[in-house]
Design a protein around this nucleic acid. Sequence first.
DNA 1: GATTTTTCTGTAACTGGTTTCACGCAGAGC
DNA 2: GCTCTGCGTGAAACCAGTTACAGAAAAATC
Lengths: 361, 361
Amino acid sequence: MGARPTIHDVATRAKVSPATVSRLLNGSARVGPETEAVVRQAMEELGYVPSRLAQSFARGSSRTIALLVDGDGQSLQGNAFLMTIALGLGDVLADADYSIRIINGHQAMRQNRQSAAEWTRDRWRRHEFDGAVITNPTMTDALIEAIGAASIPAVVIGRYPHAQGLVQVDVDNVGGMRMATTHLTEQGHRRIAFLGPPPSLTVSSDRRQGYMEALARAGIKSDSDWLLETEGTDLEAFSFEAAHRTMTSALNQPWSWTAVVACNDEMALGAVRALTEKGLRVPEDVSIVGFDDLPFAHMVTPALSTVHQDIRQLGQHAGRALLAAVEGKPVAELTIQTVSFVTRASTAKANAFDWALDLET
Amino acid sequence: MGARPTIHDVATRAKVSPATVSRLLNGSARVGPETEAVVRQAMEELGYVPSRLAQSFARGSSRTIALLVDGDGQSLQGNAFLMTIALGLGDVLADADYSIRIINGHQAMRQNRQSAAEWTRDRWRRHEFDGAVITNPTMTDALIEAIGAASIPAVVIGRYPHAQGLVQVDVDNVGGMRMATTHLTEQGHRRIAFLGPPPSLTVSSDRRQGYMEALARAGIKSDSDWLLETEGTDLEAFSFEAAHRTMTSALNQPWSWTAVVACNDEMALGAVRALTEKGLRVPEDVSIVGFDDLPFAHMVTPALSTVHQDIRQLGQHAGRALLAAVEGKPVAELTIQTVSFVTRASTAKANAFDWALDLET
DNA sequence: GATTTTTCTGTAACTGGTTTCACGCAGAGC
DNA sequence: GCTCTGCGTGAAACCAGTTACAGAAAAATC
């Protein structure tokens, strides 16, 4: 057993030129039927597998797409999201013979003093990847700008104001939250709080908007007392802890709502914790809905009613869009994926007393 | 702005040979100080970045390691684990200029009829990666065999009987479960159940063993009635649903234990659900501990007492081991990472009545 | 039957680095 | 003053494919 056979070995054995073998390999031109048979047999006999290294080099493209992450590792929950996206990307990209490489922008700062944006651009120029998927909200701004400036084919998951001109895919945050809130109004709830960060990011403002729309459609006049805003920068405001804090302080003064829609599942659990600590029961005293349908949402007790999103499918959408972008085909600027509401145990009908109280006013 | 500058452009500009530039670039040989200055300036002026494609090709190595996954996507929870491992790998591998590629063995079956093992071996032969990390328990057996046979540098996360001769890293399952169980005995519990799959995989048998050891050390004679075994193939037996089923049927007949140690967090939640449905309270009536400290463990109510493992660090260990293996250095066959127990709200002291009951017998 | 077109195949240049080998030159040792 | 080392450098081969170009043979057209 000698060294790995090369295309030349195959060519020699089949008594043809390397060019012919190459043509057969990737169908770039016609080859005669009997030639094909001979070459295929030679490949078979030698156990020939083309070297991807050489292919990439000769073609000037690595057939790789980068999944840009910013893993300083705070959020394990976010990691589930990322890997699921990666698998979704793989579903569509593997068929086109692309592979996925994880690039952690956070490394940049640790190693050299480059910014994540410069670092990424350099790696692009090194032909380490042909296109990129950007998922991380925290480093997005500078990165998106750099990606845009370098005209790297890229798709952004989640929407960001600065991402103009880039391809974006996102779930239907507005619609999802509308469904969640509507579920509550259909259960007889009339006074419904919204627990979430101020509408600084697209996610939070969209979700809040869905809540507002649902109230309006149900003919409920929204009350600013129902807006329970969490505090903290960026991701902090979306956390269990922030939700728990805000909810606790809300419960320390009089309140009127009978249900809470939380901006995401994690925050919903923060609310549950705060309520439980005050001796209130979910859903008997207060109904709660979340958003995301994280893997644990059905495992907690009570099981969380929430908005389900198919993250893997989101990754597939991103993959298709990116593939088109890399190959220079036209791409839709924005793809919105539909979501669905799943009713579980954290929501219940508003009880008659509350109902009467509301009619009275 | 013309084309990307090559090493020849730099060489020409600096009036040296490409060889010298290459030597400077990766310090493979000495270059004179004034030559260095000239070359560096030329690189600077041209904005030269070496092409990784060409480097890989010339060196015959892609400086890439593969994260072998089997993503048919059942387990979002597993995805969090995978991405965290990937980030941990990245922490150590990025410094050595390696990057991480996700390879989904499940694609193999979908595309061609190859087995995942053959598919992986072929990709290895194409030089797509220099080493591999195997994390997936389901496809491990055939894969490990193939990897071993092809003598691909690899590390296996979690231990498997068939992985002889391969480098393995794992968390201290025995020790972790011992700590968890000991926590319960220290709280006065004397009759403690174990909820888990039969000891067919290393994980389950190790964790069960830890439980046994802790009982023995506390001078408690274990009772076979305390072994609550879940059913199902492979991963199923580790699931929320399996735990819920087993626990429910256990509660349908007389039982004597006052605490349950679950094989993992997901199963702990299954137990909580079953208990709650029977009107029992956690931890007032029954204490529960889990294992893994999944991201949601502290968010559920009651917050789960569990064994914490630093998965990212596990990934780092795997990275270091793999790096050594790839570079042909000697590697420890098995690295065991320590874990810690974290006390939260799902465990409480055994009440006096139970305590007395136990002494009596 | 001559001309044009099409199909197939070989030759050779090219991708951008790395690395071996040889050589010039400076300082050290005798 | 002559050899011996050893450092720094350049020339050129090499990695394993792809692809532009040209040419020969076969098929189609008139």
